[in-house]
């Protein structure tokens, strides 16, 4: 395995959990809901993914557990913020706290146990091609799924009627309501989708990235995903670019350090954040387009007929 190929493989692993969580949150925010509980949904996904794989012996079923548990957390969030019209910011923060605590409790028995790895697929001939074989045809299913999600979300949001409805709800829920769209139903579905993605992102951590369970293993990745969505101005392809850029800079700074490049390591550790924000701000510098892309009703509760 060449060094270049190996670096790229590492970058894909680092970027995929961010991408999964961010693409889900993008849809949530496009529908006008701000769910700050990504970190909480992710960590529950991580522990449930691990638990599911242990219980069933199959990492694929583990990923399904992760997905469903993320949706469960999202359902709670949806019930509180959409049904009971609780404050979205506060509820999102509470969801993160709940997730961190709950996952610690569920995972107590799993500490110190090795996990089951969800391995890459093997396509005869293709996976063995030199250079590109493993990169293109040897990844795990979740990597392909994350990329398919980006394409799918991009297509649905901007090319279909369903996407138009989601964006309408996010931009002006009163008008959408007047047109006969069920705002709450659309938002519920978006929130659930976001939860599923965040849960899968957590599952990716405990099944692929580092197959183990330790408390707090998300280590702030949910917050990074949230920031990516904003800096990418709610555009799916920019989220993709941001996640991979963040992953790439994070890996390259380790290589620079190991090479003995004389730059303070504290600066190196900050570099992925700085670089990603800088690049995304530059590509999103057109103010008018940014305003068009920002969901106008983001974070605003909708109460029908009141």
């Amino acid at each position: 395995m060449g060094a270049f190929e190996s670096i790229l493989l590492t970058v894909i692993t680092a970027a995929t959990p961010l991408l999964l969580a961010a693409i889900g949150e993008l849809v949530v925010e496009r529908s006008g809901v701000l769910n700050l509980g990504v970190e909480g949904m992710m960590i529950v996904g991580a522990v449930m993914g691990f638990a599911g794989a242990q219980a069933t012996g199959s990492p694929y079923l583990g990923a399904v557990f992760a997905l469903l548990s993320g949706m469960g957390m999202a359902l709670l969030f949806g019930f509180l913020t959409l049904h009971l019209v609780a404050n979205q910011v506060a509820t999102g923060l509470a969801l993160t706290l709940l997730g961190l605590g709950l996952s610690g409790m569920i995972g107590e028995a799993f500490v110190g146990q090795p996990g089951i790895r969800l391995t890459g697929i093997e396509i005869p001939v293709l996976s063995d091609l030199p250079l590109v074989g493993r990169l293109l045809f040897g990844q795990d299913v979740l990597v392909y799924l994350s990329l398919a999600l980006v394409a799918g979300v991009s297509y649905v949001l901007f090319r279909t009627r369903a996407g138009l409805i989601i964006r309408a709800v996010g931009d002006n829920h009163a008008s959408a309501h007047a047109l006969g769209v069920s705002v709450l139903k659309v938002r519920y579905l978006a929130v659930l989708f976001g939860g599923a993605c965040a849960g899968l992102a957590g599952g990716y951590l405990s099944l692929v990235y580092t197959p183990q369970w330790v408390e707090g293993m998300t280590a702030g990745r949910g917050w990074i995903a949230l920031a990516l969505v904003v800096f990418a101005t709610w555009r799916p392809l920019r989220v993709l670019a941001g996640a991979y850029l963040f992953g790439a800079v994070g890996i390259l700074q380790f290589h620079a350090q190991a090479h003995g490049v004389a730059i303070p390591s504290q600066f190196m550790s900050a570099l992925p954040y700085v670089a990603t924000i800088a690049v995304l701000v530059i590509i999103s510098r057109n103010r008018i387009l940014t305003r068009v892309n920002t969901p106008a009703c983001l974070g605003r509760p909708f109460v029908p007929d009141r």
Binding site: A3, S6, I7, T10, T13, A14, P17, L205, Y209, T210, Q212, V214, M217, A219, R221, G250, I251, F254, H255, Q257, A258
Partner: peptide, 13 residues
């Protein structure tokens, strides 16, 4: 864990 794994991969590479 994620970063520690990345660092280990970089060192091995």
């Amino acid at each position: 864990p994620g970063k520690e794994a990345d660092a280990a991969k970089a060192l091995l590479d």
